[in-house]
Design a protein around this nucleic acid. Structure first.
Length: 942
RNA sequence: GCUCGAGUGGUGGAACAGGUAGACACGCAGGACUUAAAAUCCUGUGGGAAGCAACGCCCGUGCGGGUUCGAUUCCCGCCUCGAGUACCA
C-alpha cells in the first residue's frame, strides 16, 4: 500500500527538528526581524484541548511563512506558571505547587511538540522561575522608585521629586498623585519626620500601599481585580465577592489613562478590543464644580472640626450646561463628608440608610438597579451660578469610586435623577425650550435654547458650555475636566503561589530590599493556607526576615505581574544581569504579530500596555506599544451529543430512541461522550461498554439502521462529555491533518463549535498530495522535465492567491487554494519536479511534516525546506490573450464574449454591440448606456 | 439600556475594491473497481415550473425601503443571534 504513513513521518521530523535545533533563533542584525508571539498558557493539569492550538497553529504558519520570506523569526513559547489551581491542589494534597507545575509543563511541552510547532525551545520562559521573577520584582522596584510627571508626561525618578521637595516644596510639581495630597513648602518638607516623608512619597510613587475598597472573595481567601469579577462573583470558582476596606499594594495605572487611550491609535488591533479598552478606561469630558456647603459653621451641624477643609462639595458632570436645573445634590453613602453633613434630626435616618446599603451584596445591588432609595442629610449647599439653596441627599446610585463620589441632580435632563426627584418630591426645572413631557420622564436633549438658566439664557449647547467653563475658571469654583473610569490596579494577592513583593517593613513603613538581594525567592511553608492570625500563607514561613530582623511583605503579586513584560525575556532568556540584553531588545523591538484570546482585552492586554509605557519611559522598551498587530482567535466551543432515553419507571429497562424519532415518545436527553459518536451516529457497542448506568440489555430504536444523536453547541467541558483531545485526533489522522483542519474550519477570529465530521476532507487532501509524488507501487514518479505552460499557470495562480490570502490572515481560504492547486495538478497528471517542489514550499507552513518528507524525497538536504525561498509570483504567466467578458443587459448576464485584453474600452464597446445576442436584445435601437469594467464585465443598458 | 460583531444551500463556509452568489470541504444520491467491505476514482447536488431536450426561463444572501446600469457588499429603518459592559453623573 502506497499510503502516506503520517505517524512515522511526523515522528521522524519532530525528532529531526529537536536534534538539529532547526528553529534556534539568534539576533542577526543584518536580517529583517519578525517577532510572532502566542499568549503563553497557564499549564493546567488537564493539558491541551482542541481549542488551545487554534491560535498556536495560525501563529506557527505565520512564523514558518516569514522564515520562507527571508525574515529572522522569533517564535517562542513559555508558561504563565503562577496561579490558583496549583495552589489549591497544594492545599488539598500538600504537594508543592512547583512540582505540580513542572509536571503540567512537561505534559504541555510534549503536546505542543507533537503539533509540530517551530518554537525555539531554548527560549522557554516560566513566570514561576526565580531567574524570571527576579525581573518581575525588579520592575516592581522601578515602579516604586518612579512617579508620573504630568509636565513631561512621563515617569521620572522619585529622587528628582525629593530634590524638588527639598528646594521648593510641591507647589510647582504637577504629577499624578493621590487626590488628597496637601500643599507643602520646602520648610514643611524639612520638618517632616522620616515616616511622614515616606508617607508623602507614597502619594506619588507608581506603586504604593493603598487603603481602599477591594473585591474581597472569602471563598478564595483573596482580593480580586475588577476584571477577575464577573457579575458579582469570582470568575474562577464562582464564589461571592464583597467590598472590603484593606491595605493593598496598588499600581498607579490611572497616571497613564490618557496615553493608554491615545496609544490605541498606533496599533493594528481589532475595533472590538480597542473599544473594550476605551470603554474600560472610560473617558468622560466634562467639568468639576464646587458647591459651597450652607452654614458650614452653623451649630446645628455636628461638625467635629471647625478647621475641616471641606467647606464645599465637589461634583463632576458631563452636562455642566444643565447646572441651572439642579434641584438636589447626592453623595455616595461612603462619602467622607457624610458624618459632617448629617444634622442631628436626620442622624438616625442616615445611619439606618448607610447600614442598609453596606449590608447589601454586590449581586443584590445590581439586581435592584431600578429601585429608588436614598435619604436626606438635613444639610444644604449653594449652587454657585444662581445662589439657590440645594438639599443634600445620600443615595447608593452614586458610586464612591467614580469621580468625586458626589453628583448634582438634574431631574429634567436625566432619567435617574428624574426618578429620584419624583420619589422625594423635588422640583423638576425645565432648562431648554425644546424639552418635552418632562412631567412624565426626563428629556436629555441638547437641542434648543436655554431657559431658566441665568447667564446662558437664549444660548445653544455649545455656546453655553464655553460661557460656563469660563465662569467656573474665572471664579475658581471649578474647571473643565476629563474624568476616567479606570481605577488604580490592586496589586496584592493573599496567596502563596505568586511572586513575593520585594519589600520589607521598618516601623510599619514599607521599604524596598536591596537590588543585590534579588530574586527574593518564595520561602518554603508547611501549609498553604492563611495563618491562624489571618495573615497570608507566606506568614507560615519560618525565620523569613529581611536582614534577619525585618518583616517581609506577606502578600504576593497578582497573576498579571509576570505576564506584563514576558515578551522581552524571550529575546534573551538566560541573562542574569539584565532583564534582557539591550542589543537584543533593540533588534527585536516589539511584537509584530500577537496571537491570543479576546478575553484578555481589559486584563492582560491593558496591564501589558501600561507596563510597557512605563518601561518605555525608563528607557528599556524601544516602543510605546508592545504589540503592533493583534489577532484574537475565536473560541472553539464544544459540540455536545445527546441520546434520548424514553421515560420509564425507576429501575425499568432502558430504551433509547434515535434523534429523528424522539418526538413520538416522551424522552430525557442525556449527554453522550462525543468520542464514541461519528457524524452524529452513535457507536452502540462502545456506548454500552462505556456506561454502567444504563441497566441490563438496553434497547435502541434506530432509524435506517443507525442511532442518530442530537447535538447542541455548548462550552467545552468535562461534565458535558464534549472535550476533544488533540492527542486522539493526531493518533487517528496525524498532526498535519489537524493543523489543516483547524485552519479550514472557518475564519480564525470567529467563534465556532468543534466538529470532527469533515476532517476527512483535510486528510484526503494530504493523501492526494502524497500520490502526486508516489505511484501505486510506492515508487517516486517525479521527473525533471520542463513544466508546461499550463502547469506553470496552475502553480502561479496558487502562489498569487496564497500570498495575498496569508498577508490578510485568511488561513481558511489558503487551505482551499492549496486544495484546488493539488486537484488541478492531479488532473494534469503533473509530475514535474520544478512544479511540485514549489508547491511543497507553499504547503510547508500548514503541513510541515509531509512537506519535509517529500522535500527530502526530491533530493534536497534534510530539513532545508524550513529555510527555503518562498516562490516568486510571475505575473507574465497569468497574462491572457483574451478575456471572456460576461455581457449583462440591464444588469442580467446574457452572454459571454472573449475579447483581446489589449482592447480599449471603446473597442470593447464596439465589439459587444456587434454581437448577435446583444443585437437581438437591442432590436435595432441604440443602447442608452454601455458600461465597460476592464477585465470584469460589460453592461449594456437599453 | 449602551458598544461592537454576525445573519448566505442539508452542514462548515467562499466571493480581493459594488461586477456571472454558493469556490473549497463535508454530507447525500448514482456509477466504476471488488466475492464483499474498506480505500480509491468518476458523475450529480440552492429552490422552482415546464419539458423529448436545451449550454434556455423564473426566484434566491434575515426582513422592509433607498442609491446604482448592476448590491451578499454602500445608506436608512426593523428583526434575530453572539460578545463585551452596565446606576460612570
Amino acid at each position: 500500500m502506497s499510503d502516506y504513513n503520517f505517524s512515522l513521518v511526523e515522528k521522524k521530523w519532530q525528532q529531526f527538528w529537536d536534534e538539529n535545533q532547526t528553529f534556534e533563533t539568534k539576533t542577526e542584525p543584518n536580517k529583517p526581524k519578525y517577532y510572532v508571539l502566542d499568549m503563553f498558557p497557564y499549564p493546567s493539569g488537564a493539558g491541551l484541548h482542541v481549542g488551545h492550538p487554534l491560535g498556536y497553529i495560525a501563529s506557527d504558519i505565520i512564523a514558518r511563512y516569514k522564515r520562507l520570506k527571508g525574515f529572522n523569526v522569533l517564535h517562542p513559547m513559555g508558561f504563565d506558571s503562577f496561579g490558583l489551581p496549583a495552589e489549591q491542589y497544594a492545599i488539598q494534597t500538600g504537594q508543592h505547587p512547583a512540582i505540580t507545575t513542572e509536571q503540567n509543563i512537561a505534559t504541555f511541552t510534549r503536546q505542543l511538540k507533537s503539533l509540530g510547532f517551530s518554537y525555539d525551545w531554548n527560549k522557554v520562559v516560566k513566570t514561576s522561575d526565580p531567574a524570571y521573577y527576579k525581573w518581575t520584582q525588579w520592575i516592581f522596584m522601578q515602579l516604586f522608585n518612579h512617579f508620573y510627571n504630568l509636565k513631561s508626561d512621563k515617569a521620572e525618578p522619585i529622587s528628582t521629586l525629593i530634590t524638588t521637595f527639598e528646594k521648593e516644596g510641591n507647589a510647582t510639581i504637577k504629577a499624578a498623585c493621590d487626590e488628597d495630597t496637601p500643599n507643602f513648602s520646602a520648610d514643611d518638607w524639612a520638618k517632616m519626620s522620616e515616616k511622614e516623608q515616606q508617607l508623602m512619597l507614597f502619594k506619588y510613587r507608581l506603586t504604593f500601599p493603598d487603603e481602599s475598597t477591594v473585591n474581597w472573595c472569602p471563598g478564595l481567601g483573596s482580593v480580586l481585580s475588577n476584571d477577575e469579577v464577573k457579575e458579582g462573583v469570582s470568575e474562577r470558582g464562582g464564589f461571592p465577592v464583597e467590598q472590603k476596606l484593606m491595605k493593598q499594594w496598588a499600581m498607579r495605572i490611572t497616571a497613564y489613562s490618557e496615553r493608554l487611550i491615545n496609544g490605541l491609535n498606533e496599533v493594528d488591533w481589532s475595533d472590538s478590543i480597542k473599544d473594550q479598552q476605551r470603554n474600560w478606561i472610560g473617558t468622560s469630558q466634562g467639568a468639576s464644580v464646587r458647591f459651597e456647603i450652607l452654614d458650614v459653621r452653623n451649630k446645628s451641624l455636628n461638625l467635629p472640626n471647625i478647621q475641616h477643609p471641606a467647606s464645599n462639595i465637589e461634583v463632576f458632570t458631563t452636562r455642566i450646561d444643565t447646572i441651572f436645573g439642579v434641584s438636589y445634590m447626592v453623595l455616595a453613602p461612603e462619602h467622607e463628608l457624610v458624618g459632617v453633613l448629617t444634622t442631628s434630626e436626620q442622624k438616625s435616618a442616615v445611619e439606618e440608610y448607610v447600614t442598609w446599603t453596606k449590608s447589601r451584596s454586590e449581586v443584590e445591588r445590581q439586581s435592584e438597579v431600578k429601585k429608588v432609595s436614598g435619604v436626606f442629610t438635613g444639610s444644604y449647599c449653594i449652587n454657585p451660578f444662581n445662589q439657590e439653596k440645594v438639599p443634600i441627599y445620600l443615595a447608593d446610585y452614586v458610586l464612591a469610586g467614580y469621580g468625586t463620589g458626589a453628583v448634582m441632580g438634574v431631574p429634567s435632563g436625566d432619567q435617574r435623577d428624574w426618578n429620584f426627584a419624583t420619589h422625594f418630591g423635588l422640583p423638576i426645572i425645565p432648562i431648554l425650550d425644546s424639552q418635552k413631557g418632562i412631567e412624565k420622564e426626563a428629556d436629555n436633549t441638547k437641542e434648543g435654547k436655554y431657559i431658566n438658566s441665568g447667564i446662558i439664557n437664549g444660548l445653544d449647547y455649545k455656546a453655553a458650555n464655553e460661557v460656563l467653563i469660563k465662569f467656573l475658571e474665572e471664579n475658581k469654583i471649578g474647571k473643565g475636566k476629563i474624568q476616567y473610569r479606570l481605577r488604580n490596579a490592586v496589586f496584592s494577592r493573599q496567596r502563596y503561589w505568586g511572586e513575593p513583593v520585594p519589600v520589607y517593613y521598618k516601623e510599619e513603613i514599607p521599604y524596598l530590599i536591596e537590588e543585590s538581594e534579588l530574586p527574593l525567592v518564595l520561602p518554603e511553608v508547611d501549609k498553604y493556607l492563611p495563618t491562624e492570625t489571618g495573615e497570608p500563607p507566606l506568614g507560615n514561613a519560618k525565620d523569613w526576615k529581611y536582614l534577619g530582623k525585618y518583616e517581609y511583605e506577606l502578600s504576593t503579586m497578582p497573576g498579571w505581574a509576570g505576564s506584563s513584560w514576558y515578551w522581552y525575556r524571550y529575546m534573551d532568556n538566560k541573562n542574569e544581569s539584565q532583564l534582557a540584553d539591550n542589543q537584543a531588545i533593540d533588534y527585536w523591538k516589539d511584537i509584530d504579530l500577537y496571537m491570543g484570546g479576546s478575553e484578555h482585552a481589559t486584563g492582560h492586554l491593558l496591564y501589558s500596555r501600561f507596563w510597557n509605557h512605563f518601561l518605555f519611559d525608563i528607557g528599556i522598551a524601544p516602543k510605546r506599544e508592545f504589540a503592533r498587530k493583534l489577532i484574537n482567535q475565536g473560541m472553539i466551543q464544544g459540540r455536545s451529543n445527546f441520546v434520548y432515553r424514553i421515560k420509564m419507571e425507576a429501575g425499568g429497562q432502558q430504551t433509547f430512541v434515535s434523534f429523528g424519532l424522539k418526538d413520538q415518545h416522551e424522552t430525557t436527553p442525556l449527554h453522550v461522550d462525543v468520542n464514541i459518536v461519528e457524524n452524529d451516529v452513535l457507536d452502540i457497542e462502545k456506548f454500552k461498554a462505556s456506561r454502567n448506568d444504563i441497566g441490563e440489555n438496553p434497547q435502541f430504536i434506530l432509524e435506517n439502521g443507525k442511532y442518530i444523536c442530537g447535538t447542541e453547541v455548548e462550552k467545552m467541558s468535562k461534565s458535558k462529555y464534549n472535550v476533544v483531545n488533540p492527542d486522539d485526533i493526531i493518533e487517528k489522522y496525524g498532526t498535519d491533518t489537524l493543523r489543516l483542519y483547524e485552519m479550514f474550519l472557518g475564519p480564525l477570529e470567529q467563534a465556532k463549535p468543534w466538529n470532527t465530521n469533515s476532517i476527512s476532507g483535510s486528510f484526503n487532501f494530504l493523501k492526494k498530495v502524497w500520490r502526486l509524488f508516489y505511484d501505486d507501487q510506492d515508487k517516486l514518479k517525479i521527473v525533471s522535465q520542463e513544466p508546461t505552460n499550463q502547469e506553470l499557470k496552475v502553480l502561479h495562480t496558487a502562489i498569487k492567491k496564497v500570498t495575498d490570502e496569508i498577508e490578510r490572515y485568511s488561513f481558511n481560504t489558503v487551505v482551499s487554494t492549496l486544495m484546488i492547486c493539488a486537484n488541478e495538478l492531479a488532473a494534469l497528471k503533473c509530475n514535474k519536479k520544478a512544479i511540485l517542489e514549489q508547491f511543497l514550499i507553499l504547503l510547508s507552513p500548514y503541513a510541515p511534516h509531509i512537506s519535509e518528507e517529500l522535500w527530502e524525497a526530491l533530493g534536497h538536504e534534510s530539513g532545508s525546506i524550513s529555510y527555503a525561498q518562498f516562490p516568486e509570483f510571475d505575473p507574465k504567466l497569468l497574462e491572457e490573450d483574451n478575456f471572456e467578458y460576461p455581457i449583462s443587459i440591464n444588469g442580467k448576464v446574457r452572454a459571454n464574449l472573449a475579447l483581446p485584453v489589449t482592447f480599449s474600452n471603446t473597442d470593447i464597446e464596439k465589439a459587444v454591440l456587434e454581437n448577435t445576442i446583444v443585437q437581438k436584445w437591442l432590436e435595432g435601437k441604440a443602447p442608452k448606456k454601455v458600461i465597460v469594467v476592464p477585465k470584469r464585465i460589460v453592461n449594456v443598458v437599453i
